[in-house]
Amino acid sequence: MSLLELKDVRIAYGGVEAVHGISLAVERGRIATILGANGAGKTTTLRAISGLIRPRSGSIRLADADISQTPAHEIVNRGIAHVPEGRRVFSTLTVEENLRLGAYRHRGHPEKVSSNMGRVYKLFPRLEERRQQLAGTLSGGEQQMLAIGRGLMPDPDILLLDEPSLGLAPKLVQEIFRVVRKINEQGVTVLLVEQNARLALRVSNYAYVLETGRIVLSGPADGLRRDPRVKKAYLGEK
């Protein structure tokens, strides 16, 4: 049974439909990727899953409960954490305050918050060194680590990652993906949105290709990597 399932989801912005009825499923414990060019509707899809926008129609099910009408602030409590595009850390708050807010659902349980914080610091030791620093003063890579760490603080069943590699140096990108794999090994399901198709297909089990609001291709990541259409359009190979 899949953990997260979208069925025929249509999403519109002010009357203009951006996503035209997409269906996808993410199996528990796996990494799934949505590939696609700018404006294909990837971010919009993630925003609908986490409740920031309401789909016009269709269903979004998490472990068999429909969440398409659930407000965003309750969706975190159901087990979905969304690491938004562009990191969006709270720049005038400290690293530690950012992490604390990630665990807002556990705010009555300080032991839980500090044990989760310990886990994040183990994953990203650099954040611990900078815990009293304002998030806005971190480098791009560190901000991405903070954004991911903040996403882990509420103990999600599934982590939505929107373009984690955007604007990062190749070495950092490698490190981020190594951590994504590690998070997944610890039992967190991941739904990844990426422009870096090569890396995304390497870490994930299953992938969907989104073009102008429609899924045009899907399948196991290994297979897609060898698909001539994917090679040509997303991997830059002949």
Binding site: R88, F90, L101
Partner: peptide, 24 residues
């Protein structure tokens, strides 16, 4: 306080505050 931090976070970015589980 945590609620105070939530107020500051909401002042910075409503949508991201929502993603933290903060009821704006």
């Amino acid at each position: 306080t945590t609620v105070g931090a939530a107020i500051r976070a909401t002042a910075i970015d409503h949508d991201t505050a929502r993603l933290m589980g903060i009821d704006v």
